[in-house]
Design a protein around this nucleic acid. Structure first.
Length: 105
DNA sequence: AGTAAGGCGGGCA
DNA sequence: GTGCCCGCCTTAC
């Protein structure tokens, strides 16, 4: 399932609705690996299609933007275009935009 | 096969 | 809030 993890990750990112975001942790959990947040980031970094796969909608669990292959500035810009606002390096009202997939809080 | 790296998380000083 | 370290997981060399 190693190779599949990569696929599953990209696939999962595509499920994030426009105007919403998720965190590496949540995604890792959704993938069955609550502790693989790092691996998720690794996968997204090697994301073949930056546009088709909205990896910019994935941020850190603490609300910070996190990183982006093309730079976090670009990431923030893309998110802003989707209606998400920022407060410095953090997403404003994170819980409001946070997409938790099928997970229950 | 071994090791380093990477868009992280959490705990503690 | 900041900084540091350790832990976790997968991918690349």
């Amino acid at each position: 399932m190693r190779q599949n993890f990569f696929q599953a990750t990209l696939n999962l990112v595509k499920k994030i609705p426009v105007g919403q975001v998720s965190t590496y942790k949540i995604m890792a959990t959704a993938l069955g690996r609550p502790l693989a947040a790092r691996a998720v980031g690794r996968a997204l970094n090697k994301n073949p299609e930056l546009i088709a796969t909205p990896c910019h909608r994935v941020i850190k669990s603490n609300g910070e933007v996190g990183g982006y292959k093309k730079g976090k500035l670009m990431k923030k810009s893309l998110l802003k275009q989707e209606g998400i606002e920022f407060f410095g390096e953090r997403v404003k009202d994170l819980d409001q935009y946070l997409f938790k997939f099928n997970l229950k809080k």
